[in-house]
Simulated assay, not measured.
Amino acid sequence: MTETATPDAAPEITLEQLSGAYAMRAKFYMHMFDVLRDEMGADKAVELIGEATFRLGEDMGQKLAPHGPANVEGLTEQFLAGIPCRDHLFAPELRKCDAEGMEIQFHRCPLKDNWVAEGREGEELEMLCHAAGRIDAGMFGAAGFVFKGETWKPGRTGCCRLIVEPGATEPAE
């Protein structure tokens, strides 16, 4: 007799499955970049992928919006808690978290790791990171914060550095 899962039962996701999902996402970005670059040039490819990724981030930022525009500590806690297999896949280093803002340095990124494994490097890798990294600007902006992060550039170690500051508060009437 076979067992059937109830609709409410969440399946266990393995690190291998999650890594595979990130690898597929990385390949999608990479192939989309190649197609758009061939048709429109590299700058336009980065712009278009970046805009789509920014919009995805805006959707994701809705769950963080209750912390906006100034609860940096709450934002940081929820953001870090929501990263699946965060230490293995991203290795975030929380460098700052106070009322003035948050800074997180990612030492790994499954997207970048996959692009490097595919032979992408230098300026091309930087462009892919920039386009994919727009997700953070969309996410933190939609949550009501100011995003000032940086994506990876040649010569740097690690990956993205997220810098988030409180957003504007409405003046009292």
Rank of each mutant, 00 (worst) to 15 (best):
A5Y: 13
P7C: 02
D8T: 13
P11D: 05
P11K: 10
T14Y: 09
L15M: 12
A21Y: 05
Y22A: 02
M24S: 13
M24V: 11
R25N: 04
A26S: 03
K27D: 12
K27I: 09
K27F: 02
F28I: 14
Y29K: 04
M30Q: 12
M30A: 10
H31Q: 10
H31P: 00
M32Q: 11
F33G: 02
F33A: 03
V35N: 01
L36P: 01
L36W: 04
L36S: 07
E39Q: 14
M40K: 05
G41W: 05
A42G: 02
A42C: 02
A42I: 04
D43W: 07
K44F: 01
K44P: 00
I49D: 01
G50M: 04
E51D: 05
A52V: 10
A52T: 06
T53F: 00
L56C: 07
G57V: 13
G57D: 00
E58C: 10
E58I: 13
E58D: 12
D59V: 14
G61Q: 14
G61D: 11
Q62N: 11
K63W: 01
H67D: 05
A70Q: 15
V72Y: 02
E73V: 15
T76Y: 12
E77C: 03
Q78W: 03
L80D: 08
L80Q: 08
A81T: 13
A81M: 08
G82Q: 05
I83R: 08
P84G: 07
R86A: 06
D87M: 04
L89T: 01
L89E: 00
L89G: 00
P92R: 01
P92H: 04
E93G: 06
E93I: 10
L94A: 12
R95H: 10
K96V: 03
C97H: 06
C97I: 13
A99E: 15
E100T: 14
G101P: 03
E103Y: 06
I104A: 08
I104F: 11
R108T: 01
C109I: 01
L111S: 00
A117D: 06
E118M: 09
E118H: 05
E118N: 11
G119Q: 10
R120H: 02
R120W: 00
R120Y: 04
G122R: 06
G122Y: 01
E123L: 04
L125G: 09
M127A: 14
L128Y: 05
C129G: 04
A131H: 06
A132Y: 09
R134A: 12
D136Q: 13
F140P: 02
A142T: 05
A143Y: 07
F147L: 08
F147W: 11
F147K: 12
K148Q: 15
G149K: 14
K153I: 07
P154K: 09
C160G: 08
R161D: 13
R161C: 14
L162N: 14
V164N: 13
E165I: 15
E165D: 14
P166F: 08
P166K: 12
P166V: 14
P166S: 15
P166I: 14
T169I: 04
E173A: 15
